[in-house]
Design a binder for these strands. Structure first.
Lengths: 348, 348
DNA sequence: GTGAAAGCGCTAACAT
DNA sequence: ATGTTAGCGCTTTCAC
């Protein structure tokens, strides 16, 4: 409750104490002994006046702006950024921190985003949260040095900055296990063909589930292409056109799954009765609007945003060890979201 | 370039002038005469030292934080919020302002969002930008009084706050005109059934195009229901099942259009050869991933974000008249985005 | 257990 | 045309 014009001296006067005491009790300054009775009086006075500290004055004095910079790629393209923002936002509010957001283009090279980082530095943010829109490796701009930083959805090539990334392997395991438990043994995998962690991780998860259930790995069941709707359609047409077609498809992402839906429809295959499909990403706009709803794996964007702010706070307070954290990226859970695209395979 | 530890006095010393002069030069303070030669010297000194002002000190002194609060509903749900953020962001940067974002739940009642507004006030934002996720009327929280405010995608019930909203009528005109120009005369309209401006505006646009082209209005061609995929499907099934089915469908939004695609497929109607479809919203995730790509109308979220910040700046500088602006919401263009879902009707 | 006072970096009123 | 200086509201050192 910051009512304009009310300052710490007004509170002091009303409580009959000095501004020092007010500052001490309102900030719970450590190593400061203030009588309990006085504390109560001060707090009451503050509330009565609707006092709130002047952030600018605090910042000037303490050299801390209370601002956290969020540098995010492609805010406008997917709702993913929205979830990161939301998670970061809520965590920031918890710690009385304010989120400042800068959008950036997807670029690469060590000097990419340097200007955006500078804009954040000019704003005197206390820390920065660097978010990419898909899981990959990045080189951080040099001017980020010295500013507490945390990465979201990417890992630092130099291995010096803590990062949170989705547990791709775990997500794929959840997806494929769901299919196996429904009774499927011939499970096709429409994978991405980019050399990114998700491509490898999801394949690894797929293989590990087969192995665990003693289902032989059949390389002809794994197709790959660009992770878009059209390639998903083409790949699905191909694999579903075979006489020994799989009874289920695990798709690298929801867009490819959307393509697979179309292929199935064209081939007269009903979902989920003739064909089960699981996607990845949980893009609500797609997954919830397909017929039937697409069972898929959610990416932990909200959680990564929250984790990032929490970690930054602990770093700022010296409660966490950056080197230790940076050693290994923190893996966040990718939970399965069950809709209606999976059923038991035909008895035939 | 804010290099820590460099202050205005360092610049003054290096340039051999007083801090006053430095301040005057760097801020282009009006009514201040400084010799051109001095200005140059000061600017060079500043650049040499990598000087950047301490925002906190500036804020403390001038009572302006340089912060703009963006209160947005449902940041995480659609990419719409992302575009508003982006537009606002870019405009803010232009004016050396920083955007602070607060997410909010969709609520109603005059006290909805009051706490969120308070959070912004506590942050001492200079102005606020209040954005809703779909076009409607709102009552603003009382504590927003006194803070320059601008509305996005909604209008103020009290008629006191300037607002930017999409030109729903114009967008519908663009959509239906496109259909008419392709040769269609029997055009179905799958409308929303909520009592919101978009429902009425898009119907008005639809009717006005028919009228302009002397196509009689046929009420049986206008169906309405909830603006979701499933109702879109059901409505489309119904209207396309008729013997005198329309040759084209204008859908209230892309989700309904997605349902219409499914209905067309099931009925063996090819798009665009047997049926043309135009949507509304330009949700890329849907529109670009449908087969064929959905021709639709884009909502001006980016533009509304930019307009809002520009307007706020002008309000702050006293260059715009709030009352005049608040009188009538500013209409922003909804341009047609042509993909592949429209063709000439069959000759039969 | 409490208070006086210095000073964070800047702007602006006032002098010169 | 340029400089001197007071103070914005707060935290913090030091004195009591």
């Amino acid at each position: 409750m910051a009512v304009k014009g009310t300052g710490i001296r007004d509170v002091a006067k009303l409580a009959g104490v000095s501004v020092t005491t007010v500052s001490h009790v309102l900030n719970d300054t450590p190593h400061t002994r203030v009588a309990e009775e006085t504390r109560v009086r001060v707090r009451e006075a503050a509330k009565a006046l609707g006092y709130g500290p002047n952030r600018a004055a605090q910042a000037l004095r303490t050299n801390r702006s209370g601002l956290i910079g969020l540098l995010s790629e492609e805010i406008a393209t997917t709702p993913h950024a929205g979830r990161i923002i939301l998670g970061a936002q809520n965590a920031a509010r918890e710690h009385d921190l304010t989120l400042v957001i800068i959008n950036t283009d997807r670029e690469s090279g060590p000097n990419a985003h340097k200007d955006d980082v500078q804009a954040l530095i000019d704003r005197q943010v206390d820390a920065v949260l660097y978010a990419t829109m898909y899981h990959r490796m990045v080189s951080l701009p040099p001017n980020l040095q010295g500013l507490p930083t945390v990465l979201i959805d990417s890992t630092d090539r130099a291995g010096i900055v803590p990062a949170a990334v989705p547990d791709e392997v775990g997500g794929a395991i959840a997806a494929v296990t769901h299919l196996v438990e429904a009774g499927h043994t011939r499970i096709g995998f429409l994978n991405n063909d980019d050399d990114v962690p998700a491509t490898h991780g999801r394949l690894e998860g797929y293989r590990s589930v087969l192995e665990k259930h003693k289902i032989p790995y059949d390389a002809s069941l794994v197709l790959s292409g660009p992770s878009e709707t059209l390639p998903g359609y083409e790949l699905a047409r191909e694999i579903l056109g075979r006489s020994d077609r799989p009874t289920a498809l695990f798709c690298y992402n929801d867009r490819m799954a959307m393509g697979a839906y179309r292929a199935a429809t064209e081939l007269g295959l009903g979902i989920p009765d003739d064909l089960s499909i699981v996607g990845f990403d949980n893009q609500e706009l797609i997954a919830a609007n397909l017929f039937p709803g697409l069972t898929t794996v959610a990416l932990p964007h909200y959680e990564m945003g929250a984790w990032a702010v929490e970690t930054l706070v602990r770093l700022l307070h010296g409660e966490a060890d950056r080197k230790l954290l940076a050693d290994e990226p923190t893996l966040l859970d990718c939970p399965l979201v069950i809709r209606g695209s999976v059923a038991a395979p035909h008895a035939d």
